[in-house]
Amino acid sequence: GKMTGIVKWFNADKGFGFITPDDGSKDVFVHFSAIQNDGYKSLDEGQKVSFTIESGAKGPAAGNVTSL
């Protein structure tokens, strides 16, 4: 299901970062391709987001990332 969290950091040049889930679980990798907006796909440190957990090739990653 949907989770919420805070963006820990995001490197716009490399197109990835990490989200710290509100439930205290392990930080989740986020790739820019998972960001659900029409414009420039980037996130800001400290931004609140909702997301799902998808299993990627390198382990769990955030999917369906939407800013709240």
Rank of each mutant, 00 (worst) to 15 (best):
G1M: 09
G1K: 15
K2A: 09
K2W: 07
K2E: 08
K2V: 11
T4W: 04
G5Q: 00
G5W: 00
G5R: 00
V7G: 00
V7I: 08
V7F: 02
V7R: 00
K8G: 03
K8H: 06
W9T: 09
W9D: 06
W9F: 13
W9S: 09
F10W: 09
F10A: 02
G15Q: 06
G15F: 01
G15D: 02
F16T: 05
F18E: 08
F18L: 07
I19K: 00
T20K: 15
P21H: 00
P21A: 04
P21E: 00
D22A: 07
D23L: 07
G24K: 09
G24C: 07
S25P: 06
K26C: 11
D27Q: 05
D27R: 03
D27Y: 02
D27P: 09
V30Q: 02
V30W: 01
H31A: 05
F32M: 11
S33D: 06
S33F: 02
A34L: 02
A34W: 01
A34I: 01
A34R: 10
A34S: 13
A34E: 10
I35T: 04
I35Y: 03
I35N: 04
Q36Y: 06
Q36L: 12
N37L: 12
D38K: 14
G39L: 09
G39H: 10
Y40S: 13
Y40G: 12
K41I: 04
L43C: 03
L43A: 02
L43H: 01
D44Q: 14
D44W: 12
G46E: 03
Q47M: 09
K48M: 12
K48Q: 13
V49G: 00
S50C: 10
S50W: 06
F51L: 03
F51D: 02
T52G: 04
T52Q: 09
T52Y: 08
I53N: 05
I53E: 03
I53C: 11
E54Q: 13
E54V: 15
E54T: 15
S55K: 14
S55T: 12
S55M: 15
A57G: 09
G59I: 04
G59E: 06
A61P: 02
G63T: 14
G63Y: 12
G63K: 14
V65Q: 01
V65G: 01
V65H: 01
V65P: 02
V65M: 01
L68R: 07
L68A: 10
